[in-house]
Simulated scan of single mutants.
Amino acid sequence: MEAAIRAIAEQGLGASTAVIAKSAGVSNGALFTYFETKADLLNQLYIELKLRKAETTVANAPMDAEPREQLRYVWYRMLRWATEQPLERAALAQLSVSNDVTDTSRAVARKPYAEVEAILDRCRANGTIRDASPAFVASLVMAMVDAAIDGLAAEPDAAERHAAIGFDALWRAIN
């Protein structure tokens, strides 16, 4: 999986199984012992990366806190994951737009984020986007997360300030 993450992050979805296998220190044929097709590998990798991200961003969320504090926790954990795992973030970005990743894999990968969706629902219950679909809200939030991450990368000396400004903007957008 680590070899696939690196190859896809660096070369995109066109990274060959031969490159992935070589990086993993196995033969191309051996790779297909574990994955029937490249599409199977991509689906497993997508699920694996989403679960890793969930472990970092959702685990130990303060569920007894106010919704704003719950959301703040998830926000900062997402920023932390993205800055600490740039290859995983790059590979996941590629996989997220892949036609090879099935609806079934996407559904499996969404399950650990049910609590985040619940947090967002509580945060927007009385806000201007209360009637928006959960998919739209998730897209909006992820766009703001991505913008914040790009800002942190561009100006690392102002990372803390940008993270706080980004969260305040997110809060105002959904509440």
Score class of each variant (00 low, 15 high):
residue 1 M to V: 09
residue 2 E to Q: 06
residue 3 A to P: 08
residue 4 A to K: 01
residue 5 I to S: 03
residue 5 I to P: 04
residue 7 A to N: 04
residue 8 I to F: 01
residue 9 A to Y: 01
residue 11 Q to A: 09
residue 13 L to M: 05
residue 14 G to S: 01
residue 15 A to S: 08
residue 17 T to A: 15
residue 19 V to C: 00
residue 20 I to K: 04
residue 23 S to C: 05
residue 23 S to R: 11
residue 25 G to R: 15
residue 25 G to K: 13
residue 25 G to Y: 10
residue 25 G to E: 12
residue 25 G to W: 11
residue 34 Y to G: 02
residue 35 F to T: 11
residue 37 T to K: 10
residue 37 T to V: 07
residue 37 T to I: 06
residue 39 A to N: 10
residue 41 L to D: 10
residue 43 N to P: 03
residue 45 L to W: 05
residue 49 L to C: 07
residue 49 L to P: 03
residue 58 V to Q: 13
residue 60 N to C: 01
residue 60 N to Q: 11
residue 60 N to F: 06
residue 62 P to S: 05
residue 62 P to G: 06
residue 63 M to A: 14
residue 64 D to C: 06
residue 64 D to A: 09
residue 66 E to M: 08
residue 66 E to N: 14
residue 67 P to Y: 06
residue 70 Q to I: 14
residue 70 Q to Y: 02
residue 71 L to C: 05
residue 73 Y to H: 15
residue 74 V to S: 07
residue 75 W to K: 05
residue 77 R to N: 10
residue 77 R to A: 13
residue 77 R to E: 12
residue 82 A to M: 07
residue 84 E to Q: 02
residue 86 P to Q: 08
residue 86 P to S: 08
residue 90 A to M: 09
residue 91 A to E: 07
residue 92 L to W: 00
residue 93 A to I: 13
residue 93 A to N: 01
residue 99 N to P: 08
residue 99 N to M: 13
residue 101 V to P: 02
residue 103 D to Y: 01
residue 110 R to G: 05
residue 110 R to Y: 00
residue 111 K to H: 06
residue 113 Y to S: 12
residue 113 Y to D: 15
residue 114 A to I: 06
residue 115 E to N: 05
residue 115 E to T: 07
residue 118 A to C: 02
residue 118 A to E: 12
residue 121 D to R: 07
residue 122 R to D: 00
residue 131 D to M: 00
residue 132 A to P: 02
residue 134 P to T: 04
residue 139 S to A: 15
residue 144 M to Q: 12
residue 145 V to P: 00
residue 145 V to H: 02
residue 145 V to M: 04
residue 146 D to N: 14
residue 148 A to D: 08
residue 149 I to A: 15
residue 153 A to N: 13
residue 157 D to R: 06
residue 158 A to P: 00
residue 160 E to C: 08
residue 160 E to H: 14
residue 161 R to C: 03
residue 162 H to E: 05
residue 164 A to E: 15
residue 165 I to W: 14
residue 165 I to K: 15
residue 168 D to V: 03
residue 171 W to D: 14
residue 171 W to E: 15
residue 171 W to Q: 12
residue 171 W to H: 11
residue 171 W to I: 01
residue 172 R to M: 15
residue 173 A to C: 14
residue 173 A to M: 15
residue 175 N to Q: 04
residue 175 N to Y: 02
